[in-house]
Every structure is written in structure tokens, then in C-alpha cells.
């Protein structure tokens, strides 16, 4: 269900009482409603579903968890290597 895509906020404006942002996805930008992410600022990434941002991507958490994932990967390569040598 629920396709949501990460995009970067380029600029934010108030349009008829709505918080509307220009959000970039790869090389594409689209107008996105930012009413649900009052904390998001230009430069932030948001997850966008049917034209609405539903969360601000937590850059620190993303970085931390990705580094963890990579560390697991490197560990696995070492372990995998050992397993191969011992087998």
C-alpha cells in the first residue's frame, strides 16, 4: 500500500493558508503540501505520499543506521571469508 518517496525541499511558501513546498525527486520537482511536517525546512528531505509530506527524514538516524548496516556488511564479509577458509 502506500508508496512514499523521499524528496528534498527546495523552497517553502504559504499558499492560501497551506504550507506548500517545491520538492525535488532526483531531477524532478513537484509541489508538495507540507502541512503535516511543520518542523521541516528547506534543505530537509521528506517522505511524500499522494502529494503530502508525511514525515521529515531524520538525517542523523538515517546516517547512524546506515553506518550500522555497512558495519554489519563488513563484518559479514570477514566472517564469510573465514567460513570459506575453514571449510
Amino acid at each position: 500500500m502506500c508508496l512514499a518517496v523521499p524528496g528534498k525541499i527546495l523552497e517553502i511558501e504559504d499558499r492560501d493558508g497551506n504550507r506548500v513546498g517545491k520538492v525535488q525527486f532526483g531531477g524532478v520537482t513537484r509541489q508538495v503540501f507540507l502541512n503535516f511536517v511543520p518542523e521541516a525546512a528547506a534543505g530537509d528531505y521528506v517522505m511524500v505520499h499522494v502529494g503530502f509530506a508525511i514525515s521529515r527524514v531524520d538525517a542523523e538516524e538515517a546516517q547512524r543506521s546506515y553506518e550500522l548496516l555497512q558495519a554489519m556488511g563488513m563484518l559479514e564479509e570477514e566472517l564469510g571469508g573465514e567460513a570459506e577458509r575453514t571449510s
Binding site: 508508496l3 518517496v5 524528496g7 525535488q24 525527486f25 532526483g26 531531477g27 524532478v28 513537484r30 511524500v48
Partner: peptide, 13 residues
């Protein structure tokens, strides 16, 4: 696939 085409495809599923 160009980056902009990729972005549009992701966005629209």
C-alpha cells in the same frame, strides 16, 4: 535511465 526520468518514475510508481 536518466536521473530525472528515474525520479518521475519513483514518484508516480
Amino acid at each position: 535511465v536518466r536521473e530525472d526520468v528515474k525520479g518521475a518514475c519513483e514518484l508516480l510508481g
